[in-house]
Simulated scan of single mutants.
Amino acid sequence: MQTVLAIFLAVGAAASAPAAKQAPARESYGLAGGQEKVGCVMTHRKITRFPVPVTIVRPGPVYEESPPLRGQVVSALSKPCERLEDADVDPNEPASKSYAVRLDKGSWQEGVWSGIAVFSGVVPGSLRACNSREGLHYTVWKGKPLRSALLWHAYEMLGYEAEPGGPTGCKDQDYAE
């Protein structure tokens, strides 16, 4: 699934990105979360014109294979939405910005959701999510996850203790900065 996802992102980027320079990884991705059809995204991308299309991917091994969510970034927020108030995007970077997201009709699901927001013209990469003791780590890798350069990292605190380890547990490379 991860290889297929990397190819999906690479093809999408090539088709939608102008021949000029692409945005750096920290501006190409964001952490998204919400409930049903509304939510927010935290990113280092500066957005001044709305709406902006976004694809939200829930990568493995934490999440089972599921279609990406599609939506629109519709406005700036003064702080993250409740779903992401205990989250952090690229902790070693300056503070991220928060934006409201509305999922497209037919794309949303019941209940809460979260994942990696992928903007148009992204730097191609492989996406991964893993669980640690109290939350989820989302990462983007230049090539094969855990074996290539880490391009982007975000953390979402779950608010309760989870059981780390097993096939969905994080490895040391997931925390490397």
Rank of each mutant, 00 (worst) to 15 (best):
L31D: 10
A32E: 03
G34N: 04
G34H: 04
K37F: 07
M42S: 05
H44C: 05
H44I: 03
R45A: 06
R45W: 01
K46C: 05
T48Y: 04
T48C: 00
F50H: 07
P51A: 02
P51M: 04
T55Y: 12
I56K: 13
P59A: 09
G60C: 05
V62S: 10
Y63C: 01
S66F: 12
Q72G: 05
V73G: 04
L77S: 09
S78H: 06
K79P: 03
R83Q: 09
R83H: 03
L84N: 02
L84H: 01
E85H: 09
E85P: 02
D86W: 00
D86S: 15
V89S: 09
D90K: 02
P91R: 14
E93R: 15
E93P: 00
P94R: 09
A95N: 03
S96G: 11
K97I: 01
K97Q: 12
A100N: 04
V101M: 03
R102P: 02
R102E: 13
K105L: 10
K105W: 06
G106T: 15
S107Y: 11
W108N: 14
W108H: 11
Q109K: 15
S114N: 12
S114C: 07
I116R: 12
A117V: 03
V118S: 08
F119E: 01
F119S: 00
S120R: 11
V122F: 11
V122H: 13
V123I: 07
V123E: 15
G125H: 03
R128T: 13
N131G: 06
S132P: 07
S132R: 06
